[in-house]
């Protein structure tokens, strides 16, 4: 067993885990933060994207022990004091989701994208940046629209 201490959505948490525990397992199984999803075994779908020290990473491809000491933000930590984050709002406004399973990863990816590339995002950039997030329902069109709108609203 290995012990890890990290900040998740602003709260310090510690756990004793088998070293093979993935960050996503720590979040879902130990902390019951089930908004972060698992959709694949090959690090391709992006349903599990969270922020680690401000960077979007696939929590299914990071050991919990690798995140020791890190600041992690999950979809549950995005809305501040019950007020939706502008990107969350934009997904709802633009019908950027159907079944909702890919949505947390999409939103976390989108927020980091805006942090990196700014508030004015063209369609091409958004589509390129969504390379690591798969959605089976929507056909992406409204996701792209939502992200462009959310980016502006994050100003």
């Amino acid at each position: 067993m290995a012990s890890v201490t990290l900040t998740v959505n602003g709260r310090t948490v510690s756990a004793d885990v088998d070293p093979r525990t993935l960050l996503v397992q720590l979040l879902r199984e130990h902390l019951h933060l089930t908004g972060t999803h698992v959709g694949c075994d090959t690090s391709q779908c992006g349903a599990c994207v969270v922020h680690v020290n401000g960077r979007a990473v696939k929590s299914c491809t990071l050991l919990a022990v690798q995140a020791d000491g890190a600041k992690v933000v999950t979809i549950e930590g995005l809305a501040a004091n019950g007020k939706l984050h502008p990107m969350q709002e934009a997904f709802r406004e633009n019908h950027g989701l159907q079944c909702g399973f890919c949505t947390p990863g999409m939103i976390m990816t989108a927020v980091e994208l805006v942090n990196r590339k700014g508030n004015n995002l063209d369609e091409h950039t958004i589509r390129e940046e969504l390379e690591g997030n798969l959605c089976r329902c929507t056909g992406y069109h409204n996701i792209v629209k939502a992200i462009a709108a959310g980016a502006k609203a994050m100003r």
């Binding site: 979007a56 696939k58 994208l113 990196r116 940046e129």
Partner: peptide, 9 residues
Amino acid sequence: IGDPAVRNQ
């Protein structure tokens, strides 16, 4: 290379 999350790691 890959996608943004892969590039971040």
